[in-house]
Amino acid sequence: DRIFMTRTEALEFLLKAHQTAVDKIGHPSHKQTPADHAAIEALDRLLLDVRARRVDQFQINASAAQIIVTD
């Protein structure tokens, strides 16, 4: 599946995904793992790359739809 978004929409989408990941590892019942921190770092890099126009398409994980940034 493909989803087309403007750059602004894609950045909002990534910010929400980032916040969800941060909230998940901050929850008291969740045991933090290196994979959790790696996922947040990957989202940080992706946010910067989309914002800087170095990336025009991405996929958060293998089961997610491919996001295509349109400007």
Results as ranks from 00 to 15, higher is better:
21 A>W: 13
6 T>A: 03
57 Q>H: 14
9 E>T: 03
41 E>Q: 12
21 A>M: 15
55 V>N: 02
11 L>F: 04
71 D>A: 07
58 F>T: 00
70 T>A: 06
38 A>R: 10
42 A>W: 14
20 T>R: 13
26 G>A: 12
34 P>D: 11
19 Q>W: 05
13 F>N: 01
58 F>W: 02
63 S>E: 12
12 E>A: 14
64 A>Q: 11
70 T>W: 09
50 V>A: 01
4 F>V: 07
35 A>D: 12
56 D>F: 15
13 F>H: 05
69 V>C: 02
10 A>P: 00
12 E>M: 11
56 D>T: 15
35 A>F: 10
30 H>C: 05
9 E>W: 02
67 I>L: 02
63 S>D: 11
4 F>R: 05
69 V>S: 01
57 Q>E: 10
6 T>M: 03
71 D>R: 06
31 K>Q: 12
47 L>T: 04
54 R>I: 10
71 D>F: 04
38 A>L: 12
17 A>D: 01
70 T>G: 04
51 R>W: 08
49 D>T: 02
53 R>P: 01
50 V>F: 04
52 A>D: 12
12 E>C: 11
42 A>V: 12
38 A>S: 08
24 K>E: 09
45 R>Y: 03
20 T>N: 13
59 Q>L: 06
47 L>D: 00
60 I>E: 02
43 L>W: 03
35 A>M: 09
48 L>Y: 06
35 A>T: 07
27 H>L: 12
62 A>V: 08
64 A>N: 09
64 A>E: 11
13 F>G: 01
55 V>K: 04
15 L>C: 06
34 P>L: 10
65 A>N: 06
68 I>E: 03
26 G>H: 15
7 R>Y: 11
10 A>F: 01
57 Q>W: 12
27 H>P: 07
34 P>H: 09
56 D>M: 14
1 D>C: 11
13 F>E: 03
56 D>W: 15
49 D>A: 13
66 Q>L: 15
48 L>K: 15
1 D>A: 02
46 L>T: 02
67 I>C: 02
52 A>Y: 14
37 H>K: 12
28 P>C: 06
4 F>H: 05
57 Q>D: 04
45 R>E: 04
22 V>C: 05
69 V>R: 01
57 Q>C: 10
29 S>Y: 05
